[in-house]
Design a protein around this nucleic acid. Structure first.
Lengths: 232, 232
DNA sequence: GCAGAAAAGTTATTTTTTTCACAAAACAAG
DNA sequence: CTTGTTTTGTGAAAAAAATAACTTTTCTGC
């Protein structure tokens, strides 16, 4: 039972329910899920909102707020049953779990990502890589076969792929992204430092290393040498 | 002249001014800066808030609000002088520009990042890498020399490094982060999938690949097959 | 059984961020 | 010179997100 639907006494599409969940809540729920998985592996049976909160540097209220969105109800005083809460979060992420992704652009960064996901540490599988360089096509890199980008549409159709990690160079990213969308891709994790201009029904998450590094540099700098008085 | 100080008729420390600028504005300003640099290279003299807005998928008002924080004033009707605006944004990021960073953890991801920054495409220089693996110490990887992590403190002191890209494995990340802080580091771009528990005066940006990929998978999934009615 | 404590769930409030709406400026055309 | 258009700058409103405050439940110890 989802509190949002409950209080509004409504039947909604999943899409509508998802739209009511704050984006940042989704991000935190993914982290909570990871933590709960670890607790299960460690044999921990119960946990509390303030446990989770401490782990991620947020408030306990925030955690409870977030958990309201997935529908599992803990018990007063004894907190959350780790296994049940985990299962309920999985249910919330039902469209995510077990799904595969592909990588496009097998440069240095692409290869590092293939390696990162090949270790079996993550539950996400990168099932294919695509590039337009004939030298890479046909090779198996970190356990992942590399195909020509022209084969993408077939592969996406056949394997019901929704999500792509895009590691193409900046100059090619937009064109490739258009091709991805034509192939039926619905979500892109964009590692290239350009904004992709695409139709609104595709979800794009920009993962801009340089921008984020500069952001850290800015705030790191503001921790030092920013004490002088100014009247800008 | 910064409008925040102006309207409040106050003299503040730079730190206080920075605190008044929304974090998201800082992120966008970095993107605007990049765009303006490109405009300069392309020989474009003037630009407008809606140009920048279209480029990044935000509203023109948002852009103007963001630019208020850096203090440069455009001209009604003729927009912004690209060069002057760029310079003013640089001035805002004065503590960031020209500063160097180091990388800690020379695994696959670390190497890919060294390669990424070695091409000279970015204006940020990664001037050293650190690892505790004796096999890596002393080697030069993508033009970047690798030192033992014990040499970090000296290097940071000598070269006035504030910012680190941390690519250590999850199990080691927290311990290494503590060591970084002891060495005087003020900002960490954290690629490892664990939250670092550190004192509040250090800026940490989590760059969690798996989490972000899952987020994309979730929203990509919500674009398909989420039309069924539910009453959760 | 009862008082007190600890925890979840939820409403209300506050804070932060974004958008709206419009004044002022500047240019263009007649 | 005047009128209309375009664009910036910004106060006010709205929306989104986070936090605080309060209620209820459940357990513990007496």
């Amino acid at each position: 039972m989802c509190y949002i639907c409950f209080v509004n006494k409504i039947t909604k599409t999943k899409r509508e329910v998802v739209a009511l969940v704050p984006k940042k809540t989704v991000a935190r729920l993914i982290l909570y899920k990871r933590f709960l998985k670890q607790l299960i592996d460690d044999g921990v049976k119960n946990t509390y909102s303030h446990d989770i909160a401490t782990k991620f540097g947020v408030t306990a209220t925030q955690v409870r707020r977030d958990l309201m969105c997935v529908g599992y109800h803990g018990a007063s005083r004894s907190g959350y049953d780790v296994k049940k809460l985990y299962d309920e979060i999985l249910r919330f992420f039902i469209n995510t779990e077990g799904k595969d992704v592909v990588l496009v652009g097998v440069g240095n960064l692409g290869r590092a990502l293939l390696s990162y996901f090949s270790g079996g540490k993550s539950h996400i599988r990168v099932v294919a890589a695509f590039d337009n360089d004939e030298h890479k096509v046909g090779r198996v890199i970190c356990g992942c076969r590399c195909y020509h980008i022209n084969e993408l549409k077939d592969f996406v159709d056949k394997n019901k792929i929704h999500t792509v990690m895009l590691c193409a160079p900046a100059t090619a990213a937009q064109d490739i992204a258009v091709q991805l969308i034509k192939s039926g891709v619905k979500g892109i994790l964009n590692f290239s430092p350009v904004r992709l201009n695409l139709s609104a029904d595709v979800y794009i998450e920009d993962f801009d290393i340089t921008m984020n590094l500069e952001k850290v540099m800015f705030f790191a700098g503001s921790n030092t040498g920013f004490e002088e008085k100014i009247n800008v």
